[in-house]
Design a protein around this nucleic acid. Structure first.
Lengths: 139, 139
DNA sequence: GATACAATCTCTAGCCACTAGAGCTTCAAG
DNA sequence: CTTGAAGCTCTAGTGGCTAGAGATTGTATC
């Protein structure tokens, strides 16, 4: 009785219909059955699975990482260490991105603060972009 | 005498040859001439231009933003305010990304710190991913 | 039961910013 | 003059969707 069409699943999991079909194409999720006419039908388990996927995507995990995590959660007996490894390495990547982004912000801030508000030929924005040596920090 | 082939330009500007050809395709940079055989030839002005592009890319500017910035730097008489606007709005985007990334890191940290190191059925990593409500902060 | 219309179906192509490779031609050193 | 690196064009692939065309199905109303 709880079977639903793709549109409803999309609303529940805050996804787009096309995205669900895309996830099916790449083998992340499948409707448990179809109607005679070919419409996909999903159950509560599919809702959980799709929410899992979307949440992991929000946290920045890539599709292949998610595929692994799904496999793990499908097999509750397996050791937690694989999931831990994936999450840890993902965290590392985030730390790296954060560091880069902070350096970037610093540079951009300096750039706009020093903009002379005159003509382009005195503009620090253009000048800084023209020559890497004007940068205070690495990036 | 300072004319160089695409390979040398690529080395000087720390780019790949294909990337330069791609930039040409989308109209960011053009060789000032070609050899009879069709090989691209670049001069010092092209080096500066490509470095400008690469540097802006490193700072996270999109191609269309760079296209505008290039136009500005090509016309030193124009007002600086357009460049300023582009840089400022870019800075804003960076701030937003930073905020999101910090929330993300927090969540990931909590996730891996609470991982029980047992089996997946008690694993916080999987559990947190399974349900958004386990998250401490928005993302 | 007929009709209207929303929802779904498949298939193709596009986005961004490159990157990689096939198969051919040109250039420069010896 | 030969050789081999470097260049050429063209096509296709990456990730993670998103959008649209044109056909079909499902469902609510009369």
């Amino acid at each position: 009785m709880s079977a639903m069409a793709i549109g409803k699943l999309a609303v529940i999991a805050s996804t787009k219909v096309q995205t669900i079909r895309y996830y099916e194409e790449i083998g992340l999720i499948r409707p448990f059955t179809r109607t005679e006419g070919g419409h996909r039908l999903y159950g509560p388990e599919d809702v959980r699975r799709l929410k899992f996927i979307r949440h992991a995507r929000e946290l920045g995990f890539g599709i292949e990482e998610i595929r692994e995590l799904l496999q793990l959660s499908d097999n509750p007996q397996t050791s937690c260490s694989a999931a831990d490894t994936i999450a840890r390495s993902h965290l590392e990547q985030v730390e790296i991105r954060l560091t880069k982004l902070r350096a970037l912000r610093k540079e951009l801030k300096r750039m706009v603060e020093e903009c002379g508000h005159g003509h382009v030929n005195q503009c620090r924005v253009i000048e800084v972009l023209s020559d890497h040596r004007h940068c205070a920090s690495d990036h």
